[in-house]
Design a protein around this nucleic acid. Sequence first.
DNA 1: TATACAGTTTTGTCCAGGACAAATATGAGA
DNA 2: TCTCATATTTGTCCTGGACAAAACTGTATA
Lengths: 297, 297
Amino acid sequence: MSIAAVERETGLPKDTLRVWERRYGFPRPERDPRGERLYPEDQIARLRTVKRLMDRGMRPGRLLALDADALMALAEESSGDAPPRSALHDLALFLLKTHQAGELRRELVQVLMRDGVSRFVLETAAPLARQVGDAWARGELQVHEEHLLSEVLQAVLRQAIAQLGAPAGPPLILLTTLPDERHGLGLLMAEAIATLEGARCVSLGTQTPLHDIVAAAIAQNADIVALSLSSNATPAQTVESLRLLRAQLPPAIGLWCGGAGAGRIKRLGKGLRVIGELAELGAALDDWRATGVAARG
Amino acid sequence: MSIAAVERETGLPKDTLRVWERRYGFPRPERDPRGERLYPEDQIARLRTVKRLMDRGMRPGRLLALDADALMALAEESSGDAPPRSALHDLALFLLKTHQAGELRRELVQVLMRDGVSRFVLETAAPLARQVGDAWARGELQVHEEHLLSEVLQAVLRQAIAQLGAPAGPPLILLTTLPDERHGLGLLMAEAIATLEGARCVSLGTQTPLHDIVAAAIAQNADIVALSLSSNATPAQTVESLRLLRAQLPPAIGLWCGGAGAGRIKRLGKGLRVIGELAELGAALDDWRATGVAARG
DNA sequence: TATACAGTTTTGTCCAGGACAAATATGAGA
DNA sequence: TCTCATATTTGTCCTGGACAAAACTGTATA
């Protein structure tokens, strides 16, 4: 497997793979006749484990010094501390592990009907997404099971949004994610809440280049650009993107961001509103309306 | 703007940007105090145009030798040859350009109700997606407008799939895309058609690592893994991925692929079925059922 | 006139090994 | 126990060279 394929598989950049090899002696791929790296399957598996433990906060220097057995032992051990869960989350995780996608979907739709859109998003969907992310980091759940939940939740949420109908606004909110952010679930949850609060929402989906976010915001005459920041990108990259975006966006257009990755950002520039929790979105919209059009020019 | 940011913005890899600079003298970024490249906005805009023309089939050597004016002239000129369209497509493109997302959605839902799912997908959604892609390549449509159509079509299609209900199968089809493929529209269209034909579909969404496609196929006990290949990735990369996937997947599980990128692949290995057009999917499913379980082991 | 083939050019991706600053950990003093 | 300064770790960037796959060219054949 070539270095490009390993980058796609594991998410570890080529530069990082090469510098690890130089510094820590792992991975130690074979070479093809051209001298290019060829990674055997067992080293890729080990890299996957390393990545998973790094997402739990561990540092590569220690992990890469470990041999395969010690690494597996560490992965096992660190999966011990499971957080408390509700009965519904237990059921959802069980259905996910046994791959009963249809059943899971029915269960979630039932909760949606019982609790309504707002409670469903805040009390069921958001905590579930978080717990599944944690379970993945602990190695309890595989990536494809996380993908599956994301897909099922997306179907349920889109159905809910469609049934809400389109409010007249204002504000008009443009929703999307930065180019390196692949997770679209937070976006959909925000869209559901905002639509419920009477805001008109236009979503561009995930991974929109900055230039096109700006172009869309101007073309649509949006009041607010809302970004969902998840956990993948480095804080430095995210801060740079937000800075560029704020600079290119007309000052009258608000820039809001939320999601798991929003909390990590410390040096947030001016003209940027951070929504720490989805539950705050409603209050933020009230604020926006209270401030009045005049104050915003 | 750093080289990493330009890669995110334009989709051109860092290595390519550096080698272009060395060979053709463009782009010619400034340097920060550390000696790192800083790309000014006008060069990024020019790179965007180059990328767009390259997606139309032109070669970088010529494009990069042109100055800014000649490049713009070429871009204008090449946008001249528009293909024939139907009245509906004209209307859809008009609504897209004037950013009337809600109206577009209503229009599409109406066509869906009138024609049924199958005709809607084959005669409306698929040609529309293709034409919008072409219009983007010609520079008539901006990226965000393409994103918007994708989002609206996704909403409509998911609604249609939800209303179809879940068939019992067989076959059980696992749908997803390769890790570097971000377009999920083809996937959804395939899911709609296959569901309509009585196949049970489980979608993992876009960008699943190969290892997890295999794990999911085995865990779900799938009969077929269906991939949607769009236009972005290099043929060589795609072929490598398909070869690896075929090797890791149990032989009894079929590997099917379709989409705009499937046509470009020439050296397709054994055990791989290419669906040239969405309309062939139904016939392929009939084939699969006719072949019988025994023959597949 | 159209098609198949061989030779040439173009082009993207890989390599090595060095460098540096941002992020993180560690230890000293209040 | 907390705060701040220092040391270590770590990812990303740099240069300039290399090579094979892909694309284009022109020639020979049906």
